[in-house]
Design a binder for these strands. Structure first.
Length: 304
DNA sequence: GCATGTCAAGTTGTG
DNA sequence: CACAACTTGACATGC
């Protein structure tokens, strides 16, 4: 019943995504910039298709798409839209092919914007940039049929309550394409499931429960309670629950359990997750090898 | 060729 | 008080 997901990259498969920097682009004329960006975006869209085919072949049920699939798209100077690119039409139709493939083979797609997206920030410019970035990811999500754009609550600024209140106010004015996909995840330093659940329940925002973060940054909730209360936030919007799993690189007893290990120790998978209908994104350095091994371990463990 | 340093953005915690 | 960690690799540069 559990569906396991791969995050962004492959270890052994020959699938790579290209990128570029603003610094590099700034040495080129605008025409040259758009030519280069067009090459990269087409390459990445085609590789996304290969990635989905590979994920399918390996029996993996979900895939997280790397944020800079179209690099620098929202940058104030270097930014662009697909319509600006010479291969814009091919890129668009490749994304459509990805959407159909994922839909037919039931591969669940998601996005996870990085740490610069902060809706709780007291700085209006930070929030404005964040909304722009989310809007870009929603455009991509719409094109490929991804139902999740997952973010953290952001900074605390000395007062969690007012930070979450700011988050809620910004959430209410997000474009519908963003709001319908946005999910919140507990993080490993600031916001626990207990912190986020009231906001999630009040505004019908699904909670992505990261059990590794919860173990690093615990609250009064047990893993069972957090899993179940998170499940309710997904049921409320009629969608399949998603959780995250990872194992600590240096063991739980070390001073720094936060860095991710190459593989998942099956002992780190909560017992109460077994048999549930949900997606579990595997955050492990060995990437698809870790997902495949975990799926095999789960099957073996079930029989014993 | 291969090693190395750099890359848009925010926030927190460490050294 | 400066800087690394989040996660991680691709790319340009210089030997």
């Amino acid at each position: 019943m559990l569906r396991f997901g791969l995050c962004c990259l492959f270890k052994n498969e020959d699938i790579a995504f290209r990128t570029t920097t603003v610094k590099n682009l700034s040495t080129l004329s605008r025409d040259r910039q758009l030519l280069k960006l067009s090459d990269i975006c087409l390459h990445n869209a085609r590789n996304l298709q290969v990635a989905l085919e590979t994920v399918q072949r390996l029996g993996i049920g979900a895939f997280r798409i790397m944020s800079p699939l179209f690099p620098r798209m929202t940058h104030p100077e270097a930014g662009y839209s697909l319509a600006d690119l010479p291969d814009g039409d091919s890129i668009q139709s490749t994304l459509e092919a990805c959407r159909i493939f994922a839909l037919n083979l039931q591969i669940r797609l998601s996005f996870h914007p990085d740490q610069f997206v902060v809706l709780s920030s007291p700085h209006p410019a930070v929030v404005a940039n964040s909304i722009q970035e989310l809007t870009y990811q929603a455009l991509l999500a719409e094109a490929v049929g991804a139902d999740i754009i997952n973010i953290h609550a952001g900074g605390v600024y000395g007062d969690k309550h007012s930070a979450l209140q700011r988050f809620g106010e910004v959430y209410d004015v997000l474009p519908a394409a963003v709001r319908s996909r946005l999910t919140l995840e507990n993080d490993d330093v600031s916001y626990t499931p207990e912190d986020l659940l009231p906001l999630c329940e009040q505004r019908a925002i699904p909670l992505v429960y990261d059990v590794h973060h919860h173990r690093c940054n615990p609250d009064r909730l047990t893993i069972e309670e957090a899993t179940e209360r998170a499940a309710v936030t997904w049921k409320a919007v009629g969608r399949e629950q998603q959780c995250h799993i990872s194992s600590p690189k240096s063991g739980w007893e070390s001073g720094t359990p936060k860095p991710h290990a190459d593989y998942i120790d099956i002992g780190d998978v909560p017992d109460c997750w077994r048999g549930r209908k949900m997606t579990v994104d595997v955050e492990a350095k060995a990437k698809e090898l870790a997902v495949v091994r975990l799926m095999a371990d789960m099957r073996g463990n079930q029989n014993s």
